[in-house]
Design a protein around this nucleic acid. Structure first.
Lengths: 209, 209
DNA sequence: GTTTAATTCAAACATTTGTTTAATTTTGTG
DNA sequence: CACAAAATTAAACAAATGTTTGAATTAAAC
């Protein structure tokens, strides 16, 4: 019962923050949109800042964990691992497009230092794992000599780019202005196909297309 | 004399907005940082929103124009044009890293609609030009069959990714926390080398490394 | 059913916000 | 110097902000 209402506030807040930004959204906006009293936000979360932390805490779990299993797994080849990483990132980001947008805003503005550090340390951990896989592939001579950090930036950056603005994404891909690309399966497939093709060509020495 | 002071306010505002975001910065913050009276911002620009428009108007010029010459130019091969586009984007974005950050915030939040439309139409125009070049290269069979829109997203997205957060960029590339990557020539070279290698491998059928 | 705790609410709180005012100072011009 | 226009200022303005209060309502426990 309690967590139902907390969840409802959190989800409404993600919608609102994704649209107007954290600083651009007032608690009264949020209360109206969520159809609760203004005092409830502070009652449940303590403050606007702590609401933000609660959002991250609740939702960031979705972003964690895939790479842990991958690191241990030795039955997969390096390129198979890279493919799984790409698919995992695309799936995760697309599963929470609004939350993703809120996180991106946070990283861009970097006001709430603790949050910034949290998201960043998670990102860095992932970076190191991916870089390790890329370097192993290079040592095995199945990967070309590439810049592993920049390669990771290209993977994440491509996804972020199309997820930055729905309207821009639609105009980039010649879609209807009110089309929602982030729930569309064709769109996901298109993104995956491109990323795989791009990274395969980049990495693989014997790349048979 | 006048434009000196307007310029000073604009440049200070870019610094402030890049750090705290537009909504997160107050006019009093700005006035204090720029060491001018609070009323001066409204005196010179009319309002906070119009100050934002003035910033874009003043600085967005740096982002325009390169592709116009490229489109007419027929002496260059398609891959040479792509290389020039990459170099041009990297140079332009790195030349105004703080303004770039402000623009990115704007696209992510999309509150000030007119601005959003402005930046977007510019972006779309560039997209179309680049896509046209990629398609011509594909018709000529010097480029592989690729997704041209997504390829453009990968180029821009890679640059944006490393320019999103200075601290994250430094940790991604194993640099000192207070190192400024955006004015460093080695960093620029590293980005250019990676992007060229990535896009060449992606596009070129006969790619001799 | 009574009591206790948790929840909800309208109202008020103190700041901060963008903006305006009206007086003062500075600058430019004849 | 005198005069008008432009620039600068401190103060005030109304509106919006995050937050708190204390009473009212609901839910839970006995």
């Amino acid at each position: 019962m309690i967590s139902d209402k907390k969840d409802h506030i959190i989800n409404t807040a993600i919608e609102l923050f994704a649209e107007k930004g954290f600083e651009g959204s007032s608690i009264r906006d949020l209360a109206a949109k969520a159809d609760v009293n203004v005092a409830m936000v502070n009652y449940y979360f303590g403050s606007k800042d702590k609401l933000f932390e609660a959002i991250v805490e609740r939702k960031a779990i979705f972003m964690r964990g895939v790479l842990d299993e991958l690191r241990a797994n030795s039955t997969l080849s390096e390129i198979e691992k890279v493919d799984l990483i790409i698919e995992s990132y695309v799936n995760r980001f697309l599963a929470q497009p609004l939350f993703h947008k809120v996180l991106q805003q946070e990283l861009l503005v970097s006001q709430r230092v603790s949050m910034h550090e949290n998201v960043m340390s998670l990102f860095i951990k992932n970076t190191q794992d991916v870089v390790a896989i890329l370097e192993k592939g290079m040592r095995k001579k199945v990967f070309r000599k590439v810049d592993p950090q920049m390669t990771f930036a290209s993977i994440i950056g491509t996804i972020n780019q199309v997820m930055q603005s729905k309207t821009m994404c639609n105009r980039l891909l010649n879609k209807d202005p009110d089309f929602d690309p982030y729930t569309d399966e064709h769109f996901k497939k298109r993104m995956l196909t491109h990323l795989r093709q791009l990274i395969h060509a980049h990495l693989l020495i014997n790349n048979d297309l």
